[in-house]
C-alpha cells in the first residue's frame, strides 16, 4: 500500500507529468497493481465528474444575445467610422471646391478624382479586386490588365501591410490601386502611366495626404489619412522596390 509512485497517480491521470516521467510511470503501471488500480480509479472518477458536471447548456437566446453583442459592437464602430468618412468627404468636397475656384482646376482634378476613389475604397464593402498580403499574388493579378508592371512589395519589417489591389480608371486610363495598412489607417497607392495621367501631387487643402512622384515612366500617387511621414515612408519604400 505504500508504493513510492502512488502520489503521482493524480498527475499521471491528468497528463501533467513531463513526457519522460509520464512514460516511466506508464512502465511502472505494468508491474504495480496498486498504482494501476489507483490510476484506473482516478480515470473513472474523472469520467464520472465530466459526465455529471456537464449539466447545463447555454440556452439558444444566450447564443443569440452574445452574437448580437459582438455584432452591435462592430456596428457602433462601423457607424462611427462611416460618419467619419462622410465628414472627410465633406471636407474633401469643400477643399476641392476651394481648389477649383483658386484656379488650380487642371492640377487638382486628377488628385480629387483619386481622393474620391480612395474614399470609395474606404467605404466599400468590397474594397479590393484582389485580396492578398502577398505581393507575388497581387502583382501577377494585374498582368494582362495593365500595359505596365510594378513592384508592390514592401519589406516585411516595415509598418506597412499590403491588403490588396484594384483596377481603377482616371482620365480614361487604366491604373492600379494598391491598398496598404499602417496601424489603423489605410493608404491607397495609385499607379498610372505617366503620359496618361498627370497632376500636381501636393494638395495642401485636402484632408488627405497626397504624395505623388514619377518613376520609370509611371505616375504614382499615395493617398491616405495617415500621417504625412507614413505617406513619405511608403513612398520611399516603393521607390526603392521599383528602382
Amino acid at each position: 500500500m505504500n508504493c513510492e509512485w502512488r502520489e503521482k497517480t493524480n498527475l499521471y491521470a491528468d497528463g501533467e507529468l513531463e513526457p519522460a516521467a509520464q512514460q516511466a510511470f506508464a512502465g511502472h503501471l505494468q508491474n504495480c497493481t496498486e498504482c494501476s488500480a489507483a490510476v484506473l480509479e482516478q480515470q473513472e472518477l474523472k469520467k464520472a465528474v465530466r459526465l455529471a458536471g456537464k449539466r447545463f447548456s447555454a440556452p439558444p437566446e444566450l447564443y443569440a444575445t452574445v452574437r448580437r453583442q459582438a455584432g452591435s459592437q462592430a456596428r457602433i464602430r462601423y457607424s462611427w467610422w462611416k460618419a467619419a468618412v462622410v465628414a472627410a468627404c465633406l471636407v474633401i468636397v469643400a477643399a476641392v471646391g476651394f481648389a477649383w475656384y483658386s484656379g488650380t482646376r487642371e492640377t487638382n482634378a486628377t488628385v480629387a478624382q483619386l481622393v474620391d476613389q480612395h474614399v470609395t475604397m474606404l467605404a466599400s464593402a468590397n474594397p479590393y479586386d484582389v485580396i492578398s498580403s502577398d505581393s507575388h499574388t497581387v502583382k501577377p493579378w494585374f498582368q494582362g490588365k495593365l500595359p505596365f508592371t510594378f513592384n508592390p512589395a514592401v519589406p516585411a519589417d516595415s509598418p506597412f501591410k499590403l491588403l490588396g489591389g484594384k483596377l481603377v480608371y482616371a482620365q480614361r486610363s487604366p491604373g492600379a490601386e494598391l491598398v496598404y495598412q499602417v496601424r489603423q489607417h489605410r493608404i491607397s497607392v495609385f499607379i498610372f502611366q505617366a503620359r496618361d495621367v498627370h497632376g500636381q501631387a501636393s494638395a495642401a487643402n485636402l484632408a488627405f495626404t497626397v504624395n505623388g512622384w514619377q518613376q520609370g515612366g509611371l505616375q504614382y500617387y499615395v493617398i491616405t489619412d495617415a500621417a504625412k511621414e507614413d505617406a513619405e515612408r511608403l513612398r520611399s519604400l516603393l521607390q526603392e522596390a521599383n528602382r
Binding site: S57, A58, V66, R67, A74
Partner: peptide, 18 residues
C-alpha cells in the same frame, strides 16, 4: 477583430454557462 472574437468566444459559451 469582432469576427475573430466571436469565432473564439462562441465555442466557449456552453462551458462558461455551465
Amino acid at each position: 477583430e469582432d469576427k475573430e472574437f466571436e469565432k473564439l468566444a462562441v465555442p466557449l459559451l456552453d462551458g462558461l454557462y455551465n
